[in-house]
């Protein structure tokens, strides 16, 4: 519990001072390897868009992300985009999510994307948002890379998604 409090306080400091976040970023491991590439061929107005967030958003009825593991929790929560706001919450001690709690669009912009669908700018929004938490480290990086990320990808392919928007926390 004390360490969770410490992480939450640190998250507030990092949120207030982006230069600290930049310094932290420089300490991370460089991921080599080829970056995949697919040409976007459909106009946005005809495309089915999926939303992926690393903001730790989940249904209140789902198990929260595990905050007791300092390497994070690499598991996936599927969040229907039509979920009423009061049934959603954020479990993620590594960023200050007080603002995101008051406007979930900051990390999970479903309201804006739905409005873009209504305005005819986006063809459709895939009705299930994919939510994970950032701050994955240690052995869980392999789990994310080898299991969770391919699982998300398979689900989006199966759903006929054309483009994916990824939002960090």
């Amino acid at each position: 519990m004390a360490s969770r409090l410490k992480n939450q306080l640190l998250a507030r400091v990092f949120t207030a001072f982006p230069s600290l976040a930049a310094r932290w970023g420089k300490t991370l491991v460089q991921h080599a390897g080829e970056i995949p590439w697919v040409e976007p061929l459909l106009p946005l107005a005809k495309a089915r868009i999926a939303l992926v967030t690393t903001g730790g958003v989940h249904l209140a009825s789902q198990a929260p992300f595990d905050m007791s593991d300092s390497d994070g929790d690499p598991s996936l929560r599927e969040v229907p985009v039509d979920t009423p706001r009061e049934e959603l919450c954020i479990t993620h001690d590594y960023y200050d999510h007080r603002d995101a709690e008051s406007d979930l669009n900051l990390v999970f912009p479903v309201e804006r994307l739905k409005e873009l669908v209504e305005r005819g700018a986006i063809g459709s929004l895939y009705p299930v948002g994919a939510s994970i938490m950032g701050h994955i480290d240690g052995p869980h990086l392999a789990t994310l890379q080898e299991q969770t990320a391919p699982l998300i990808a398979r689900k989006l392919v199966a759903a006929g998604v054309n483009y994916a928007l990824l939002v960090p926390a």
Binding site: A21, A22, I132, A149, A153, P168
Partner: peptide, 24 residues
């Protein structure tokens, strides 16, 4: 998040991502 974007793109879906810490 880069890893997830890469996996989705590798599966054939073009991705666009937001970034708030360039160094990350």
């Amino acid at each position: 998040m880069g890893l997830v974007a890469r996996a989705i793109e590798a599966a054939g879906i073009p991705t666009t991502a937001l970034s708030i810490v360039r160094e990350v």
